[in-house]
Amino acid sequence: MNYIWDLIIRAKRNGTDLRDVTFVPARVYSPYMELSHTNLNASDVERTIEVNPYYRFFDIFRDLFDINNEEQVELRETLFDLVIHFLADMDLMQGMNKREYYIRFILNDMHSGVYGKRIRRRLELFGREEQEVIACNMLRLYDTGEAVHLLRDTLVRMFPRSTLYANCEEKDELLLYIGQAERTEAKEKLELILELFLPVRFDTEIYWGHHFGILDVDYTMIQDGIALY
């Protein structure tokens, strides 16, 4: 990690609360690096981060930490921390396109309860990247209306061993094979996916650990491991 935006991304992926991260001006630093790590190969986000403020922001900080100025040190360090947090947010925003903003808006709506209390509660079961996948597919749903395709895409990305079958000859029915044991958390995740992407006209049959039998498909025809359809 060399830039503050790199550290912020790492912190968010690790679930670190950015309010617990404090930026301080580095006392000893390299002129070729923005972050001053004791260990150059550090990958963990520490609570106190030393920053070389002159690497990219010389015009902002050149007069703030004059070596001859020993007054109001605490105030200047607090101001430094606030400004670096603000600059880090700007760094992140500059790398976002219009679509990524829309994805953030959808996630904010889900977390604030616009989609309902069940969605807000169940969304917390997913990791950050999984939440972005869900929000991205919601945006695609608004654009295309391809609910069944996006249901399948979301299902496979959340449950890698899953398969979706459509039975539309006699009725609108979807058969969902999840490919793992039925547990409370997995069931809650599946309920969120179905609530967001399942078209109203479809009925569903859900198979967790055992697949229903399909002729000539060997892995579905395991003795004592076949679910009934």
Rank of each mutant, 00 (worst) to 15 (best):
G113T: 01
L82D: 09
T144I: 05
Y229C: 12
V83L: 07
V83R: 11
P31F: 03
T204I: 08
I4S: 09
E132C: 02
I178N: 05
I206L: 01
E170S: 05
D89N: 08
L82F: 02
V83E: 11
E173Y: 07
K117T: 11
T204Y: 07
I178R: 08
S30Q: 06
I103P: 08
L139H: 10
E100S: 01
E70G: 01
N2W: 04
M158C: 11
E71T: 09
G127W: 05
R152M: 13
H211R: 14
A166F: 05
N97S: 09
G113E: 00
V45K: 05
I4G: 09
R140H: 12
I60T: 13
F80N: 04
Y229Q: 07
G95A: 04
W5M: 01
I222Y: 09
R19M: 06
T48I: 08
L40N: 05
W5T: 02
T38E: 15
V28M: 08
I67Y: 11
L18P: 00
L35F: 13
L64Q: 10
D109H: 00
I226L: 01
D59Y: 03
G225N: 06
L35R: 11
R161K: 13
T154Y: 07
Y219I: 03
V28P: 06
I9T: 12
T16K: 13
G95C: 01
H85F: 00
M90L: 06
L175F: 11
D172C: 02
E191C: 03
D6E: 15
F212E: 04
A147D: 12
I226E: 09
H210K: 15
M33N: 14
M138V: 01
R140S: 13
S112M: 06
E170R: 02
V200N: 15
D218A: 14
F105L: 10
D91K: 05
G213N: 08
I49R: 10
N167W: 12
